[in-house]
């Protein structure tokens, strides 16, 4: 097996988690034209939820996935109900600083509660497992995270395309005022959008804990990549989030292999700039 192919497969695996992370952000943006700067912190809290579950309840971060999903869901919905909803009455700049403030609050709140140390899962079913497929050696934890992310992405996609509430969300995204004339409770749609964002970020975090360290500032690393992914795919585009997630994952892995791991973000941004030069609304963006 060629090294390039192997590295690309690693990239696709990571890209599936990026896609799931981008999905939550793009749903919130689509429904209410708002960027959630605290998205990385939702992920971080999901990671702690899974880590703490593994450390104290049952020694496997996978058990923490539903826990992190539930905590993320509540956190997302509460963030909307208690904070964002009020910000909507203010100017746009208040909305930007509002979720930025939420990011800082959660990040440094976590620092105060959990301390600055990096923590890793104590073990688990897939932690540190090698998976040999033909000539290909993969990390079982990464394969699990990728499969879990893909499954969750498919589930949310199905929800958006095939359920009544999903239709309401897409209508709100397409034209909020018209959606209200159909009887859609657009305020409830905002809540649901935030709940989806929080739940998917939380579960992505729990999946990552199988092979990635946890720290109060870990959200920053992933948030930068996620914002780029969403912009690359097109703000508000769900298929765009998927395609862009994979692209970002592969570009990251290939750069780390052939150039230098330090250049990962630089090359991701380079690709992003090139795409946006040609397609200002991203690969699959509408507007």
């Amino acid at each position: 097996m060629s090294v390039f192919l192997e590295v690309s497969i690693q990239g696709v695996l990571m890209g599936l988690t990026y896609a799931l992370l981008a999905l939550g952000l793009t749903v919130i943006f689509g429904v209410m034209d708002m960027v959630n700067f605290a998205h990385g912190e939702f992920l971080m809290i999901g990671m702690y939820a899974a880590y703490l579950t593994a450390a104290h309840v049952f020694p496997d971060p996978l058990v923490g996935v539903p826990v992190a999903g539930l905590i993320g869901l509540v956190l997302g919905a509460l963030s909307y109900r208690l904070l964002v909803r009020r910000l909507l009455q203010g100017p746009t700049i208040a909305q930007i600083f509002g979720t930025f403030g939420l990011m800082l609050f959660l990040r440094y709140g976590a620092l105060a509660v959990f301390g600055p140390n990096l923590r890793s899962a104590p073990g688990g079913l897939v932690v540190g497992q090698r998976l040999v497929l033909g000539g290909l050696v993969l990390d079982g934890a990464k394969v699990t995270a990728a499969a879990g992310s893909a499954l969750l992405f498919a589930l949310i996609y199905w929800f958006l395309q095939r359920t009544r509430v999903g239709l309401g969300l897409r209508a709100t995204a397409a034209h909020r005022e018209a959606a209200r004339y159909m009887g859609v409770d657009t305020d409830a749609m905002n809540s649901i959008g935030w709940a989806i964002g929080g739940a998917t970020a939380g579960m992505a975090g729990a999946l990552l804990v199988n092979f990635y360290y946890v720290s109060p500032t870990v959200g920053m690393v992933f948030a930068m990549i996620t914002f780029t992914t969403v912009a690359l795919g097109g703000f508000g585009s769900v298929p765009g989030a998927f395609v862009a997630g994979i692209i970002v994952g592969v570009v990251e892995a290939v750069t780390a292999q052939y150039f230098s791991p330090q250049l990962k973000l630089a090359v991701i941004y380079l690709v992003f700039f090139l795409v946006v030069l040609l397609r200002p609304h991203g690969l699959l963006g509408a507007r």
Partner: peptide
Amino acid sequence: VYVPEGKLVFAPL
């Protein structure tokens, strides 16, 4: 039921 001015159909749907 209100049928708005300018139709306001959901274009991407």
